[in-house]
Design a protein around this nucleic acid. Structure first.
Lengths: 241, 241
DNA sequence: AATAGTTGTCTAATACATTAGACAAATTGA
DNA sequence: TCAATTTGTCTAATGTATTAGACAACTATT
């Protein structure tokens, strides 16, 4: 058996300090304009060297969350995070309206494939049935806020990809199939580290944390119409139920 | 300005591989008993060295999630994760009933304090009003599944701590104050790395990811009765809306 | 019995993470 | 102006993470 000597957990100390300070800011312990504790004080708080703390602060400064001023201290610059509401009638655009001045959805690729066990179960269709698979991402004010993969039954939504590129919104595309109303049947939420592709597309540092939502939408008759796997950077978004 | 040359993100590659494989298992891509891809194949998938993959597999083996057999391959041993349902009528015990044979809640400490801005806003009371603060954690089948901090207005629930130790469940304790029914007003979900205290109490490897839920419960008249900040290890729990 | 495929172990080299100490540069208040 | 406080920069040492290659040990199949 392999004995694990190390207990660092694979997450660098400077990274944990970044997360902790960001949390203090987002959580309201530190307001915009507040001065952070001195580097020496933070070093003591985290049982770390001042250099390690400085590295963490450099990352936060790079994100625009804090800013250092020589001789004065380090100050909170930007403390905001978007909220994405989840409920029976979850609509992407409406949910974020008012929180960002621009909102863009990008279609990355579409393809036809056979449903895996997971997808088939979610959509309540037979294994290996044909499904349409859409890869996309969305941006708020130019910053990536989600990366999503959506599956729809091919039988019913063969040309969904073309329609959504033409119509823009999901709601309107469903409407074009005669589905005037649809509802969220279930949402499962988990969290994990971003993989390489997500890291690049979302413009995150590798190892960033993602909130993962698996959602099934159903039409008025309760028949599943889509299964979406969305990944939100936890440092930019929170989900509100 | 500090230029960040390095882009490793502070999360070790082996740790990201651990998360990715665990997710494949929990997400159903790999079922119990299935053989994982070979170490060489995994190394290619993650653009990593075989040794790095082996380190990740060693961690998963240590957790009992997978087991390697020389000459044959590495197999999935234990694929289960608990689901915690969140909705209008969220009740801790009922939600997890049937998923675990034993369910324990541990009271860590209680104290009286003045509400911070965040707590005051959630409970809709004045800043620095007195609040009761309860620290607790819960275990399913002996494994820690949550660490929670709950605040209640002192004016109404002065002896909440004593009553809940006597009565056991939250629902019954509220009932003892004449609150026969209560509902979830809002739940905000985010994610972050566990800090040192959480790591120890929950028995996690440092750097583990937590799902953080901030929930406000209200009585029948819509008056806030509690504000709870719960932290769930993402590797053991998922939240279902 | 031979072979191909798989995990287990070892050595070694290189890059990243963390600590340590010293001093410079800017700011603030006495 | 002086002194204390704070961030900025540099050098150096040590331990962790990652890669690389080679070979042993075990399993299943031919």
């Amino acid at each position: 058996m392999t004995v694990l000597k190390d207990v660092s957990g694979g997450v660098a100390l400077w990274r944990r300090i970044v997360d902790a300070i960001r949390l203090d800011i987002i959580g309201g312990k530190l307001a915009e304009g507040d001065r952070l504790p001195t580097e020496a004080a933070l070093a003591e708080r985290f049982s770390a060297n001042r250099h390690t703390v400085r590295r963490a602060l450099a990352v936060l400064a790079d994100e625009g969350v804090v800013g250092a001023e020589q001789g004065r201290g380090t100050f909170v610059r930007n403390a905001r995070r978007l909220s994405y509401p989840i409920g029976k009638r979850t609509r992407f655009r409406e949910g974020l309206k008012g929180q960002a001045s621009s909102l863009a959805s990008v279609n990355i690729s579409n393809r036809l494939e056979n449903a895996t066990a997971t997808v088939a179960k979610a959509l309540d269709i037979r294994n290996t049935s044909k499904v349409v698979r859409l890869e996309g991402m969305s941006l708020a004010d130019g910053v990536a806020i989600s990366r999503s993969t959506t599956w729809l039954p091919y039988r019913r939504f063969a040309d969904f990809a073309e329609r959504i590129t033409r119509l823009g919104s999901t709601t309107e595309t469903f409407a074009s199939y005669g589905i005037e109303d649809y509802a969220r049947a279930s949402t499962r939420i988990s969290a994990r580290h971003a993989d390489v592709e997500e890291t690049q597309l979302l413009g995150l540092a590798p190892g960033a944390i993602l909130l993962v939502s698996e959602a099934v939408d159903v039409d008025a008759d309760g028949v599943p119409i889509s299964y979406a796997l969305s990944r939100f950077p936890a440092e930019r978004m929170e989900l509100v139920v």
